[in-house]
Design a protein around this nucleic acid. Sequence first.
DNA 1: CGCCTTTGACCGGCGC
DNA 2: GCGCCGGTCAAAGGCG
Length: 196
Amino acid sequence: MDIGQESTPAPLLPPAAPALLSPLNAPFLFAPSVPSSSLHPPLLETQVLPDIDWVSLLSGQGVLAENKPMIDSSCLMAENEGDQDEKGNKDKRKGSRIKKTSRPRFAFQTRSADDILDDGYRWRKYGQKAVKNSIYPRSYYRCTHHTCNVKKQVQRLSKDTSIVVTTYEGIHNHPCEKLMETLTPLLKQMQFLTRF
DNA sequence: CGCCTTTGACCGGCGC
DNA sequence: GCGCCGGTCAAAGGCG
């Protein structure tokens, strides 16, 4: 089962996580793109749980408690997903599920008291659903950038209530706002200093 | 006023 | 065909 990662360029996402824990290959590490102070310490701690079916999670199949396949309708997107506008009506919603395309999906878990970790991007919550075999609901977020179609799901583990599983779907096509905010004055200062 | 969350309704896929 | 389930929409309301 292909999670789409192999056929795509080096992903920028998720920028937030201190480390991405790939279940398939060697752990895919990436540097935090936001200052550590803007994350959610002191409880933030990324780790792998042995009882997570990561392969299923990343390939859009059932996640935690059962092996039963799960439909990943979020992967049923039009091919030019990046160009879709967001003002769809119900008819358009039907039309947007024409074709299955594989999108890069990344999942990681954090030990945190907060469900939402600040990854530097702006997200709009568009849904929340109670899921089977979990006492906690799953929340659905979409990147608020108008040209960006990245989504993420956030769910707290019922087995270990201190752990939050975050699944990113897609790749941001714009820079991280908070990162730019942080780096811009730094870059300006560097430019100033290098003039001498 | 703009942006966000909440929440019930709706949709499509799957299993029986 | 029907029911279940996960995912999405969009109206309504809250907040700064």
